[in-house]
Amino acid sequence: MAMRCAYVRTQSADDPLSGLVVGDLPDPGSPAEGWLPVDVRAAALNHHDLWSLRGVGLPSERLPMVLGTDAAGTLGDGTEVVVHAVIASSSWTGEETLDPRRTLLSELHPGTLAERVWVPARNVVPKAPELSWAEAACLPTAYLTAYRMLFDAADLRPGHTVLVQGAGGGVATAAIVLGRAAGLRVWVTSRSEAKRDRALEVGAHQAFPVGARMPEQVDAVLETVGEATWGHSLRSLRPGGTVAVAGATSGAMPPAELSRVFFRSLRIVGTTMGTREQLRDLQQLLVATGTRPLIDTVVPLAETGTALGRMASGEVSGKLVVDIVGESGPQR
């Protein structure tokens, strides 16, 4: 049986969108016992999709590969679910993010930008009925990563101050929204005045140019930029503070500054994605506070390429969501 989807046919580092196809592929069916199909209602886009089109993290021998890590949809009995994107290996029994053989959907197994996606039964989480399909689809990557950085890796509590480096990125925007909802004082940095202004609009308390001296030292820094901001992150921390690291877009090998780390008892905590239980708790935070993911645009599946082009150019403020069932056209 064929299904409509957005998939990688070829890869190009210079022109990634040239290898994107929106068309029909056979339904892959269950790859193993215990997997089940989810009929996708909405799926969110991530930079991971662009990396796959560029040939990063997705070997060419796995093509064609359906894109997408995030989705919300229904099971065969009509149960509304959110898809957890972290796929542990079949023999793994611990926390899925610690499995050295874990993958994300669209790396080894077909992704969520399709009418149907197959996942292990443990990878579906009941969708909170208060959330729309588009809102729920935003959660499994950027918002889950931000949630885990804030409340697990950095161990922040209401009233604490957090510095989010690189305002404007998907995880950074999610951290602003969630941090404000949880009663944190949220400060951000960006080279772009427009992105600083936008961060203030969506919930940041203060916004600064990259490298600026902070009014006071902070309890934690969320670091996804890496080399360009690393020294500033360490200087901005109070003694005993924490840097939660989930990415390094500007380079992964900054000076370690170990003397500062041990003299000031700083904690550096790496973190990747989140767990099924944290995805459930994230939904409950949104429901309890009335906060919702920031959505830039919802587009039909046919316009996936246009949306990814906007993402590649940095024009996006909030999540880009694909309406798989085609119930809504482009909207802002």
Rank of each mutant, 00 (worst) to 15 (best):
G55K: 06
L131K: 05
V8E: 11
L58V: 04
G226A: 09
D323K: 00
H160C: 09
E216Y: 04
G318L: 12
D14G: 01
A174Y: 02
V245T: 04
P59C: 07
H232E: 10
A246V: 02
R332L: 08
S52M: 13
G231H: 09
S192C: 06
L200N: 02
A252H: 09
E257H: 15
I324R: 10
P120N: 07
L104M: 15
L234P: 05
V21W: 04
P100K: 07
G203A: 10
A256E: 07
S90P: 12
T289Y: 14
L163K: 03
C5A: 15
V243Y: 11
G247E: 04
A172H: 04
L258A: 15
A288H: 14
G168T: 07
R54T: 00
S106I: 02
T93E: 13
V177Q: 13
M3P: 00
P140K: 08
A44N: 05
H160Y: 07
V298G: 02
A88Q: 07
L67M: 07
G34W: 08
H48T: 03
V124Q: 04
R54L: 05
D27P: 08
F262Y: 15
G309K: 10
P28S: 06
L320K: 09
L258M: 14
S52D: 13
L301S: 05
Q331L: 11
V164L: 14
A43L: 07
L45F: 12
G183D: 03
T161M: 08
G73C: 06
G305T: 04
S60V: 13
G226E: 05
V21F: 06
S233F: 07
V162E: 06
L282S: 10
A42C: 15
L25E: 07
T93D: 10
T271A: 13
A88Y: 11
N46E: 01
L113S: 05
G29V: 11
V177K: 12
H160L: 02
P37R: 04
G226M: 05
T229D: 08
A252D: 13
A228D: 14
E61R: 00
M253E: 15
A142M: 06
A175F: 10
W230A: 06
G314Q: 12
E95D: 15
E277H: 14
L163S: 06
K319W: 12
T69M: 11
G309S: 10
P64N: 12
R332N: 08
A212I: 00
V119E: 07
L144G: 09
R260P: 01
R148C: 10
G168W: 11
A207T: 01
E227K: 11
D281K: 06
E277P: 00
E135T: 01
M65S: 06
D99A: 10
